[in-house]
Amino acid sequence: MESKAGSIIVLSGGTSSRFGADKSQAILGHQQLIHHILASVPGEFEIIVVGADPLFTGAPYRCVQENPVGGGPVAGIAAALELCESEIVGVLATDMPFAAAHMIHLLSAMTSHDDALMYVDSQGFKQPLAALYRREALESALSKIGNPHGASMRTLISHLNVHEIQMSPEIEKAMIDVDTPHDLVVAMEYLAKI
């Protein structure tokens, strides 16, 4: 297999309870939310989708599912890591359609001392679902957690040396998280402006 710059884990297996339907299938612009995300990942990155096959033809990817299904993001990351061959792993939630480019940009700031790089917003909220991680550090943190089913991202990152990057106002706008139908409207408005 050709060497890749890193692996991107796209978490698409959530319950979408606040959205009211499978939000990965929601239409943003002229394509499904998950297709929008997959199309935004540069070709030098390996893509691993956690969840159902998105039937995307624009880039190669592999699919995996946490077992049992519905285990949450940490369980999804654990399942995907079994397929990862890269030292650097990006984790991206399927409901953050404009985050990929900003997340990948964090690569330039990563040092040998960092287990993870993630943005922090103006309210001090860390964004672990649009962040870069060292694979070995993730594997070590997962081993400390034990069973990943139902574990929180907060618990996972508590075992990591996280390098926090303050979001600029522009990046904060791009980190739209589509949790509700109203959020999708906001994302459509943002898309129309870029």
Results as ranks from 00 to 15, higher is better:
residue 1 M to Y: 08
residue 2 E to A: 10
residue 7 S to R: 07
residue 8 I to V: 15
residue 8 I to C: 12
residue 8 I to K: 11
residue 9 I to G: 12
residue 9 I to R: 11
residue 10 V to G: 15
residue 11 L to Q: 06
residue 12 S to G: 15
residue 14 G to V: 02
residue 15 T to Q: 09
residue 15 T to V: 04
residue 16 S to P: 08
residue 17 S to E: 02
residue 24 S to N: 11
residue 24 S to F: 12
residue 25 Q to V: 04
residue 25 Q to K: 10
residue 26 A to E: 13
residue 32 Q to S: 13
residue 32 Q to I: 04
residue 32 Q to F: 05
residue 33 L to R: 01
residue 34 I to C: 13
residue 34 I to M: 04
residue 35 H to S: 10
residue 37 I to S: 04
residue 38 L to K: 10
residue 38 L to V: 06
residue 38 L to E: 07
residue 38 L to M: 12
residue 44 E to Y: 02
residue 45 F to I: 00
residue 45 F to S: 00
residue 46 E to A: 15
residue 47 I to C: 08
residue 48 I to R: 07
residue 48 I to Q: 05
residue 48 I to E: 01
residue 50 V to G: 09
residue 51 G to A: 04
residue 51 G to H: 01
residue 54 P to M: 01
residue 58 G to Y: 02
residue 58 G to I: 12
residue 59 A to S: 13
residue 59 A to Q: 10
residue 60 P to M: 04
residue 62 R to W: 05
residue 62 R to S: 15
residue 63 C to L: 02
residue 66 E to H: 10
residue 68 P to G: 08
residue 68 P to S: 03
residue 72 G to V: 11
residue 74 V to C: 06
residue 75 A to P: 07
residue 77 I to S: 04
residue 79 A to S: 15
residue 80 A to M: 05
residue 82 E to W: 00
residue 88 I to Q: 00
residue 89 V to S: 11
residue 90 G to W: 00
residue 94 T to Y: 02
residue 94 T to C: 14
residue 96 M to F: 04
residue 99 A to E: 03
residue 100 A to M: 12
residue 101 A to K: 11
residue 103 M to W: 04
residue 103 M to A: 11
residue 104 I to G: 06
residue 104 I to E: 02
residue 105 H to W: 10
residue 105 H to V: 02
residue 106 L to Q: 11
residue 108 S to R: 14
residue 110 M to Q: 06
residue 113 H to W: 07
residue 115 D to K: 00
residue 115 D to I: 10
residue 117 L to T: 14
residue 118 M to E: 03
residue 119 Y to C: 04
residue 119 Y to N: 06
residue 120 V to F: 08
residue 121 D to V: 09
residue 123 Q to W: 00
residue 128 P to A: 07
residue 129 L to K: 00
residue 136 E to Y: 01
residue 136 E to C: 07
residue 140 S to N: 12
residue 141 A to Q: 11
residue 142 L to N: 03
residue 142 L to R: 01
residue 142 L to F: 04
residue 143 S to R: 09
residue 145 I to R: 15
residue 146 G to N: 14
residue 148 P to G: 02
residue 154 R to C: 10
residue 154 R to V: 10
residue 155 T to R: 15
residue 155 T to M: 13
residue 156 L to N: 08
residue 156 L to C: 13
residue 159 H to G: 03
residue 159 H to E: 05
residue 163 H to P: 01
residue 165 I to N: 06
residue 168 S to I: 12
residue 168 S to E: 06
residue 169 P to R: 03
residue 171 I to S: 06
residue 171 I to W: 02
residue 173 K to L: 13
residue 174 A to T: 05
residue 174 A to V: 08
residue 176 I to Q: 08
residue 176 I to M: 05
residue 176 I to W: 01
residue 177 D to Y: 12
residue 177 D to N: 09
residue 178 V to P: 09
residue 180 T to W: 00
residue 181 P to G: 10
residue 181 P to T: 09
residue 183 D to C: 05
residue 185 V to P: 04
residue 185 V to F: 03
residue 186 V to A: 07
residue 188 M to N: 13
residue 189 E to Q: 14
residue 190 Y to W: 09
residue 193 K to C: 05
residue 193 K to W: 04
residue 193 K to I: 07
